Amino acid sequence: MLVCHCNLITQKDIEEVVVSLLEADPWQLIVPAKVYHTLKKRGRCCGCFPNVVDTIIRVTEEFHRRAGGGETEIVPFLDRVRGLRGQYGSIGHEGRRTDHRAA
């Protein structure tokens, strides 16, 4: 599935980068800018960043569950990340103006 139309980045590309970053340091904070930097791309319109954050959270949860991390460590960490997302960004907004039209 294509996540970033500006840079032609697929969800699989993002998942692979997140896993490689987690293998290097399992408890690092991964943000869209770090993923894009690893892919040697730049965020242009940044409308895809909320979807990238969702993918990062999902892949991070799966990675730590497979690695045998205890739920007591995984859940509070990711709940804090979700809380920050709720505080600083909206799921439905995606960085576009209200008068934005796709067609």
Rank of each mutant, 00 (worst) to 15 (best):
R42Q: 13
G68A: 09
N51E: 14
I56L: 05
E23L: 14
K40W: 04
V35K: 01
E71T: 07
S20N: 13
R42V: 12
G95I: 04
D99P: 05
K34S: 15
V3T: 05
D13N: 14
V18D: 00
R80S: 09
I56A: 01
E62H: 04
I14D: 00
G68I: 07
A24R: 11
H37C: 05
F49Y: 15
H37S: 13
G70M: 08
R44K: 05
L22P: 00
I91W: 09
M1T: 04
P76M: 10
R66Q: 12
L8H: 06
S90G: 13
V19Y: 03
A33P: 03
L2R: 06
L78R: 03
G83D: 13
R65Q: 11
Q28I: 12
G83T: 08
F63P: 01
A67R: 07
R58N: 10
L2V: 10
N51W: 05
A103D: 09
Q28D: 09
R44E: 13
I56K: 00
F77N: 06
I56D: 00
E15T: 07
R85N: 09
V81C: 09
K40Y: 04
A103C: 09
Y36C: 01
H93Y: 10
Y36T: 02
K12M: 09
I91L: 12
Q87V: 07
G92V: 14
D99M: 08
C6I: 04
A33D: 15
G68N: 07
D99R: 02
V19Q: 03
S20P: 02
Y88N: 02
G95A: 08
T72R: 04
V35A: 10
W27Q: 10
R85E: 08
G92D: 10
D25G: 07
L21Q: 03
V31K: 14
E73V: 07
G68W: 03
V59C: 06
L29T: 14
V75A: 08
S20I: 02
S90I: 06
L22V: 04
I56F: 05
L39M: 13
H5R: 06
V81I: 11
F63K: 02
Q11T: 12
L22Y: 04
T38Y: 15
R96N: 12
P32Q: 10
A24D: 14
S20H: 07
V19H: 02
R85V: 01
E16W: 02
T60Y: 02
P76W: 13
